[in-house]
Amino acid sequence: MILIKALLLYCLAFSQGVAGEAVLTEIAARLAKTPIAQGDFYQQKHLKVLHKPLISTGTFTYHQSKGVIWKTLTPVASLLLVNESRLLTGQGEQAVPAAFGKVFKAMLGGDLAALTDGFAITGTDQKTVWQLALTPKDEMLQKIISTMVLSGDTELRWLEIREAGGNVTRITFENITHPAQLTDEQEADFERLSP
């Protein structure tokens, strides 16, 4: 009996995995793949202890090999620079949280395949929009983030981070463009990240 159950579970897990990956390839095919992406973001953080969300807006820049510039304009101007191994904020050099370095870049760059390493992925792909739910495999990370939900069309449009403690962050991406070159300012920001 137990053996059959185990076998069933195994098949289930297996078939889900296949479905997940198939969806992933479909979605990946739809996403605009360019070395550079930039746009505006609107972020809402719902913290349990606060009765209103923390709202911030700003711009983001993604570069395939250089990383991400996350520039908050309101309520306080600040700059966050990140690649796979380094993270710079207004407070200086920080440890790169496990979820962050690769994931943030992969998400913004539409590199969904890179996400399968660290996350169990389930998803749906409909005509106009797709949606993916990512659950971290890393136990340490599970203690902080329970799920991340991504959705979009040819671009990533919406991201929701559900924390284990109940806090939720929702980010909307708008005005996304794919310039051929970085501006001087962007170049200078990325320069600070190179070791």
Binding site: V49, L50, L54, W70, S78, T89
Partner: peptide
Amino acid sequence: IKQNLEILNSPIGQMQAASLE
């Protein structure tokens, strides 16, 4: 206060936000 807002609004401020209470 300004730095706190920066941290709390940052996409990586999960740990700090969690201890905010």
